[in-house]
Design a protein around this nucleic acid. Structure first.
Lengths: 141, 141
DNA sequence: AACGAAATTGATATTCATTATCAATATGAG
DNA sequence: CTCATATTGATAATGAATATCAATTTCGTT
């Protein structure tokens, strides 16, 4: 696995240690293609490691974010969600205010325009978040 | 003041009462053109009403959001910020990761593309948030 | 292979933003 | 003016995220 190698490399570069818990969490998380709240991920990991601690999940996710293998997403329910970074492509979110459904989308033109805005303001862009709220096809009656 | 009338109308329509505290908070807030954390607004209101309660500020902001006279913004520092809605125009944010500076920008093309994305997914859009993170002209060395 | 300094874990306590509670008070329709 | 009802504000409660710390694990070095 490429990403897992990246994680191992990250740990090594930072003088951090590879542990069973960290590796299990990172391995599971990086293979997924969806959002996780900390609780959701904690519950998944717990299935194969009932001893895992909540704090360890938090800490490992923080490392993954720092390693740029994960990003944080704040929607509007007060929970922080994490999702694995799929190299090269970035996606944004469309959220249904009624059923909570989350749809991901990519739009290169929007990305381009954002770069342009940053350039106008003389900003060096590192990342961005774009969230659209509304009602999905089923919930808008 | 137009917006204050809207707020009075909102209260009336909902069967809520107009109170000195509510009116003072709404009046002050709606005349501003910037973000407030709850604490910031609380401190401002306290200058003219030292008895004001923290909870009342929270409650009034919630009403303003429900009345669509304010919007919540979640950046990445765990604090919720509120800003008055300036009818017709919407703006997004550019945030410096080092100094915390917040720049507002408007970009009609981005807005248009977002509408297009929503249409493709058959979503009925109500609002959206777009936040760009990076380093401002001074902080990128 | 074993040692040992340093990092990690996980249970628990703590912090801090936000929300709920509730007795006292204020509002406004009739 | 009255009175049912909403509101206020002090305080307690909630809940997500972080800090603490003793016990354990890791890994570079012997």
């Amino acid at each position: 696995m490429n990403k897992e190698k990246n994680f191992q490399g990250y740990l090594h570069d930072k003088g951090l240690k590879s542990t069973r818990q960290r590796d299990d969490i990172a391995s599971y998380f990086l293979q997924q293609d969806k959002h996780f709240t900390v609780e959701e991920l904690y519950n998944e990991i717990k299935k194969s490691d009932p001893q895992i601690g909540y704090a360890t999940v938090y800490r490992t996710l923080k490392l993954l974010v720092d390693a740029e293998l994960a990003v944080e997403c704040q929607f509007s329910d007060g929970l922080t969600r994490f999702e694995p970074v799929h190299k090269g492509k970035h996606h944004d979110h469309l959220i249904c205010l009624k059923c909570g459904k989350i749809i991901e989308f990519e739009n290169d033109k929007i990305e381009q325009l954002q770069l342009e805005v940053a350039r106008e303001q003389n900003f060096e862009l590192t990342n961005h978040k774009c969230v659209l709220y509304g009602y999905c096809s089923r919930c808008k009656e």
